[in-house]
Amino acid sequence: MTKAVFKKGWWVPWSFLALPLAVYLIWVYIPIIQSFGYAFTKRDSLLYKTVYIGFDNFARMFQDKQFFVALKNNLVWLLYFVLVPIPLGLFIAMLFNNSFKGNRIYKTLFYLPMTLSFAIIGTIWMWIYNPDAGFLNMILRSTGLSDLARPWLGDSRFMTGALVAVGVWRQVPYIMILYLAGLQSVPVELVEAALIDGASWWQRFTRVILPVLAPATIVSITISIIDSLRAFDIIYVMTNTKARAAEVLASYMYTSSFQYQDYGYGSAIAVIQFLITLSFILVYINRTLKAEQESGL
């Protein structure tokens, strides 16, 4: 299935895997499994009173309007996270990946949004979205587009869009880094030649560069699916998770568990969120692994 370098003994790969796998199982999988177990119980976040209630939490979820609001918003996040940052990040990485003077400065500047914590990103963007003194509405008003000015975070129709925009703003530099790392195996002349030689540009791009970038693309798409479906911090910081129109699954499970003290229900949402993400990922990973096998890479 993968290119086998060594076949000395079955224990060789396991000796490399033993330590990381042990750490991962103990610290990540045990909490996850515990948390999933709670989904079949009725309990508050103190984890006292354990009552097994079977699938009741799940049954309740499918009648819960708020759950579907969150699910729908997550799909919006997913759509934008796959469609915008990946092509844009790739484009910017290719743009900056040259031998011109100053390209390092551009890379550094463009990376800046990634160095901020979500709390800070949220605070800064709240100043931009501020309905009265905020930058966005000011620009709209001064350019004669005052009809478009609105309370971005106060109107349930625009909330999710406004929040996704912040997510995308931070995600593009991230994807850029992944592609910059990938582009290291592409000689710079190839990229420049591809840019100069207008006629075969597209061909060179699709036949030479994209295949070399496959690892970066696989990581980018996988990560974008995961990040969009577990989006939390931006929503938490900018709406305190209380703007229910903008809620996503992660914020709803947080609110349920810690604000409503309904830990069993929160865990049930986590299980569903996990299964949804897993199904997206499995479809994608299976396809790429198959392609990998066929191309013999």
Binding site: Y24, I32, T222, R230, F232, M253, Y254, G266, Q273, F274
Partner: peptide, 11 residues
């Protein structure tokens, strides 16, 4: 990969 899927707040 699957270990990354769950929002960590839940843990």
């Amino acid at each position: 990969i699957a270990g990354m899927l769950i929002p960590f707040q839940m843990l």
